[in-house]
Design a protein around this nucleic acid. Structure first.
Lengths: 203, 203
DNA sequence: CCCCCGATGTATCGTTTCGATACATCACAC
DNA sequence: GTGTGATGTATCGAAACGATACATCGGGGG
């Protein structure tokens, strides 16, 4: 998930790790954030896989043990997506299976990059997400019903609140789906692959 | 957080790990769950700290390397809270600082054990949580306002949805707080020193 | 002029958590 | 009897976390 988000952001423009983290917080919905302990190892992995490059020489290579522990002169590093990275991103962005919507976090990131996603894939992800959340809702409903007598007021309040949130999410998804369907109808049957640079489609 | 929840559940009755996990899922609000990879190490820690005991002899001790890898005869293990564990739980349950409400997960667990929590502590936790969420809401609001033009429709939809959820949570907390205050008024016997902080100038 | 402070920036450490998996027992239907 | 799903204990490697160290740079106040 993190890898996907990083590739998506670098796809738009090269960035420092610091800036990446800030943008990531926005993409993650505004309240969730990613720690450096996750970000830098992830960048290291992406770099090792050849999906991103840095402008500096290999600062990630292990140091000889007798060298000073890399104190002093720690330069800024700009991360840039490679051709392989863009390929990988487009491969990921075209996937519409359960992995795209079963996890709430990944779904959020997928949504954040919907402008890079083909219309039919968008629709399948939204519908998949709705089904997933609906199933959660049913599980929660029966759980609340079963536990009505055994649990105290506060636990029940918590579950009731959670249930209402899930309910709201279903309605929200339904609105998005309706909106997608309307757009699809008016734009014709053949969904063209979305261009990264297209400005707002139908504001 | 996990430790607190485990102690709280074992405080009510001894349990197997498996049962513990199921109850944990309920306590966590119904949609979140804890993996065995978290549960068993947590139990091991609690056991090492003397807060829980098991009915079986020390199955957690390291094995000699030449022994078969513990296959065969793996008995059930009932976990029971100790006197020290109960003491620890009551110590934790009386805390009302930021650690009790800044994290959404821990707040949920605290709420789940409110029936073991003193009325004044309950109120302080709820009010603290509301302030935390209100701050989140303000941050989110300004973020949405600032980013209105730069972001695409889907990202904005995601943020709008998040904002409404946070809004709903504030209202929910306010209802709980009102209810707590009413109870405190009618029961009278409870702590007189309720709010040293802001009298909440409307939500 | 200098010094401190807060934002920017890179990076690692130890600990915790996760998802997947292996393995075992038991109830019960077929 | 036999398999199939619930119950049950447990570990593994990968990943993420929170805290922290370290460094540079702009500007504002003494």
């Amino acid at each position: 998930m993190l890898e996907f988000a990083i590739l998506g952001l670098l796809h738009q423009s090269p960035m420092h790790g610091y800036e990446l983290r800030k943008q990531l917080a926005q993409v993650l919905g505004g309240l969730r954030s990613i720690s450096y302990g996750s970000l830098y190892p992830a960048l290291k992995r992406l770099r090792a896989a050849g999906f991103v490059t840095t402008d500096e020489p290999d600062r990630h290579a292990p140091l000889p043990a007798d060298a000073p522990p890399l104190t002093g002169r720690r330069g800024k590093v700009v991360y840039t997506i490679t051709a392989e990275g863009k390929e990988r991103f487009h491969e990921l962005v075209s996937q519409a299976g359960p992995e795209a919507y079963d996890d709430s976090g990944l779904f959020g990131v997928r949504l954040a990059f919907f402008r890079h996603t083909a219309a039919d894939v968008r629709l399948r992800i939204l519908e998949g997400r709705r089904r997933t959340v609906e199933r959660q809702r049913e599980g929660l409903r029966s759980s609340v019903t079963r536990a009505r007598e055994r649990l105290d007021r506060y636990t029940l309040e918590l579950q009731r609140h959670g249930l209402e949130s899930v309910d709201r999410e279903v309605r929200w998804l339904s609105e998005l789906i309706d909106s997608e369907r309307k757009n699809a109808d008016s734009s014709g049957a053949d969904p063209p692959r979305t261009d990264p640079e297209t400005p707002t489609p139908t504001g």
